[in-house]
Simulated assay, not measured.
Amino acid sequence: MLLGLMIRDQRAGRTAGRRNAPNRGAVRVTPPAPRSWPRLSMPSVNDAARRMQQLLWPLLLVVLGMGLYELANRLQPLAQRPISLINVEGDLQYIDRESVHQSIEPYLEESLLTIDLEALRADLIAMPWVASAAVTRVWPDQLVITLDEHLPVARWGDSALLNNAGRAFVPEHIDSFEGLPLLNGPERTKRRVMQTYQQFNRLLRPYGHRVAQLELRDRGSWFLTTREGIEILLGQGDVVEKMQRFLTIDKLMLSDRRELIARVDLRYSNGMAVAWREPATIQSGSNE
């Protein structure tokens, strides 16, 4: 029993050694490589589309050129057609329609395509009451002109009017606007003076005052005159705060004697002085 077991172990060892030993003198057989077949080159879809585009583009250009030529031949009579109707639109109160017609008349012989719209617009804006103008072609032979007028808000000196944006314009018959407030100041300050006038007017109106004159002097001092003839000296700085101070005192102490007030000096830091038109029982000058 023991001997048989030992023999079996030796055979197993020889067998294992034989299995692990390298095969000396053995020939390795390499399997044949797979046969490579020649590829058939077929044109791709992108190449075909590209070639088609190269062929079609010249043809499309020729067709487009012929179409444009035919369209130009058909439109040429219409392009030379004179303007038959000019429509002027806008809420016009001061603009003279006869003056508008005189500005348009030199352009009536032009066709719709050849008329110089910018030149016509410039001629219209040069009219005294025209604030803005727009000129539009309407096919086949019409023009639409839209005009906006200046809105006169105040006089600027003796020779011009101001619109609500502080833009000056010089219309005819300016004397008929003497009822408007009179504003004055350096030429470069028109817009600033107009804005200050509008601000003061909003402050004064609830208290029964209205601005008759407003002046900004060269050194930056403001002078205001109400419709009642009260001169208000505001000085240079904090003019809105100073005006509110006057209105507070006016409501408490002066409202029933406004016709006696000649001048109010607000150029003080925390008070004001009042000058009366005629002697009164109240002493001149009052403080908060």
Rank of each mutant, 00 (worst) to 15 (best):
A119Y: 11
L120A: 05
R121H: 09
A122S: 15
D123H: 11
I125D: 07
I125Q: 10
M127A: 12
P128G: 03
W129D: 07
A131P: 05
S132I: 10
A133Y: 11
V135E: 09
V135Q: 14
I145T: 06
T146I: 11
T146W: 07
T146D: 14
L147Y: 10
E149K: 05
H150K: 07
H150Y: 15
P152E: 06
G157L: 09
S159K: 14
S159P: 00
A165N: 13
R167C: 04
R167Y: 13
F169P: 01
E172Y: 10
H173Q: 15
S176Q: 11
F177A: 12
F177T: 08
E178A: 15
E178T: 13
E178F: 12
L180T: 06
L180W: 00
P181E: 02
P181V: 08
P181K: 02
L182K: 05
K190S: 08
Q195A: 14
F200I: 01
R205A: 14
R205S: 11
P206N: 08
H209Q: 10
R210E: 13
Q213Y: 10
E215L: 11
R217P: 01
R219D: 12
R219L: 02
G220H: 06
F223L: 09
L224I: 03
I230N: 01
E231C: 00
I232A: 02
L233F: 13
L234Y: 03
L234D: 00
G235M: 02
G237N: 05
Q244D: 05
Q244Y: 00
L247R: 00
D250E: 08
M253G: 04
M253I: 02
M253S: 09
S255P: 01
R257Q: 09
R257G: 00
R257H: 03
E259Q: 13
